[in-house]
Nucleic acid binder design. Structure first.
Length: 128
DNA sequence: GGTGTGACTACAT
DNA sequence: GATGTAGCCACAC
């Protein structure tokens, strides 16, 4: 596997990515950039560099994710599945979860996009 | 130690 | 909206 990251720090970063991905509720999807923004850059990494490459690190995390991580819920910023081996299975898994694809095989992030707070469905009577 | 590359994104044209 | 380009990390060869 390519694995453009192996150091302990990066492995730890991977675990953070997986933790967030596991938090994505069924029927919702998140983008690489969205996940990247939820995770602070590792120590020693410039924020600018992180901002530019974090999405790829998330992609690397997905490439090495355990089987219990719903990697299929992680897509690119366009709301489409990044083509690769297994992309077909990814679409099937998402459809099985209730995620709908449009004519262009794209997902409407306005509907299925994950805000990052799965336990805050009621906008009322929550914190604040 | 230079070069290519990877499940990306944002901005410009 | 579809292309093209910049951004700039870590790894394999």
């Amino acid at each position: 596997m390519p694995s453009f990251s192996s150091p302990p720090n990066q492995q730890n970063y991977y675990e953070e990515v997986w933790m967030i991905v596991r938090k994505i509720p069924r029927g919702k999807v998140a983008t690489y950039g969205q996940i990247a923004k939820m995770i602070p850059p590792p120590n020693g990494v410039d924020i600018e560099a992180y901002k530019a490459f974090a999405p790829r690190w998330v992609g690397g995390a997905m490439a090495n994710c355990p089987d219990d991580v719903p990697w299929q819920r992680v897509i690119n910023s366009k709301g489409e599945i990044s083509e690769r081996q297994g992309a077909e299975r990814q679409r099937l898994l998402l459809e099985d979860e209730g995620v709908k694809f449009d004519a262009k095989n794209k997902i409407d992030l306005k509907i299925f996009g994950w805000s990052g707070n799965d336990d805050a469905q009621p906008i009322q009577s929550k914190l604040f």
